[in-house]
Computed example of a mutant assay.
Amino acid sequence: MIIRKKRDWLARRHERALSRTVTIDDATRERFEECFYQIEAAWTTNDLSLVAPLITPHFQRQQQRILNRYQRQHKHNQLESLTIISEELILSDNPNVRKVLVTAQMRDYFTNDRLSDEDNEKRREATYIERFSEIWEFKQVDGQYLVNHIDQSL
Rank of each mutant, 00 (worst) to 15 (best):
N46C: 13
A41S: 02
T103P: 00
N112V: 13
L50D: 15
Y109Q: 15
F138S: 13
Q105G: 05
E130P: 03
L50M: 15
R107D: 15
E40L: 07
A126F: 05
N120A: 15
A42G: 14
R31G: 01
R65I: 02
E137N: 09
W43Q: 05
P95V: 05
R29T: 06
L18R: 10
R65W: 14
Q73F: 12
R114I: 12
E121D: 11
T23Q: 12
R29V: 03
N112T: 09
M1V: 06
D142S: 06
T103I: 04
N120M: 11
E30L: 15
M106W: 10
E33L: 08
E137Q: 01
R31Y: 08
Y145Q: 12
A42D: 11
Q140P: 07
T21P: 11
E130K: 00
F59D: 00
K139M: 03
R7P: 03
Y145F: 10
F138Q: 07
S81H: 14
M106A: 05
D117G: 14
D93I: 10
D47H: 11
E87T: 08
A27D: 08
L82W: 08
E125F: 04
T127P: 10
D142W: 09
L82R: 12
N46M: 05
T21E: 10
T127C: 12
E40M: 10
Y37H: 07
I90L: 05
H149R: 08
D142H: 07
L54N: 05
R65D: 11
R16Y: 15
V102N: 00
V102E: 04
S153D: 01
D113M: 15
I84D: 06
K122W: 00
R131T: 06
H14M: 11
E40S: 06
E15P: 04
H149T: 02
N148R: 13
L115V: 06
S133Y: 02
A126P: 01
N120L: 15
N46K: 07
R31D: 05
T103S: 03
D117R: 12
K139F: 03
M106T: 14
E33F: 01
F36C: 10
I129V: 03
V100A: 01
K5P: 08
S116Y: 14
Y37N: 03
